[in-house]
Amino acid sequence: MTKNGIEAAIAKLRSEPGKRIELRDDKEAGLLIRAGERGASWSLAVRLQDGQRTRIKLGTWPGMGIAEARAAARVARTQIDQGSNPNERKRVARRTAAIASLNRKTLSEVIEDYDKAVLSQHRRGAQTKRALDGKRGLLRTLLNRQPESIMKAEISDLVKKHAKTAPIAANRNLAYASAFFTGASTKAFWPKIRRRKCASRPRKMSASGFTQSVSSKRYGPPPAHWAIRSPSFFGC
């Protein structure tokens, strides 16, 4: 494999739209370059220690030349020999970077991202968003805070305050908040910081317990089938 050979193959490829080519290196086992309409990239075809075959992306051509690709392939092979999976290491690094980015966002920005990606696709998405950050939303006083700084006790106080005047609405908004925290965490909009710190399972509060906790007896107890199930974020 030479630079001129790669350039000639890519030049020929341009005259055949939709076609892809794959060239294998004759010096570094498993090293290959794949080229198509969108560009060319280096990868290493290897077998992991568990026997699984995989391809490890090394870089793109021409930013990474032949010598650099061969060196990167040797590094990746060394990691595999040591029991590591370079692809998994990259995924962990991306996940760590994503969490760091989320931690720099405010709760308002996280809700907006979640609204665009999830709530906008649901029939009651707009209603759910209003229950979170609307004029009477449960989380509206926390919108400028970073998610990692929000504590369970703050959410609990907001629910109790809301329940003094509108217990049923407070119950409903807590359910929306629960779905948001759980869903955002699952879909990587919300870093799972609180979940790592919480060893206990989410707690379930009975209807009578809810009534007592918010001191709303004068409104009468909520229906028997209503029960508050706090998400893992609240149930530490």
Rank of each mutant, 00 (worst) to 15 (best):
L44S: 09
G220Y: 10
Q82H: 15
L44M: 08
S15W: 02
F189K: 01
D115T: 10
D115Y: 13
L119K: 02
A224Q: 13
Q121E: 10
N87S: 15
L132F: 05
W226A: 06
F181R: 00
L32P: 05
S84E: 14
I21Q: 09
K3M: 07
I10T: 11
N87T: 15
I99A: 12
D133P: 00
S43P: 04
T96C: 07
P86N: 06
Q82E: 15
E7M: 10
A69Y: 04
V92K: 14
I155D: 05
R140W: 01
R74E: 13
F181N: 00
V46A: 12
P167T: 02
Q79H: 14
E28N: 12
T128R: 09
Q52F: 06
G65L: 02
T211M: 14
L174Y: 09
M1P: 08
S15V: 04
M151E: 13
L132K: 04
A40F: 01
R196Q: 14
D50F: 06
A97N: 08
K116L: 13
R124E: 06
M151I: 11
V75W: 04
E148Q: 13
R140T: 15
G59R: 05
C198M: 00
Y114K: 01
P62R: 02
I56C: 05
G83H: 09
S84G: 08
R24A: 12
L143K: 10
N171P: 01
R95F: 04
G30F: 00
G125N: 03
R201H: 02
S156E: 09
A72S: 12
A199D: 14
A40S: 07
A100W: 06
I99D: 12
K105D: 07
I10H: 07
Q121D: 09
R55V: 08
T182G: 01
S232M: 09
V118H: 01
P221M: 13
M64G: 05
I193W: 09
D25F: 10
L58R: 03
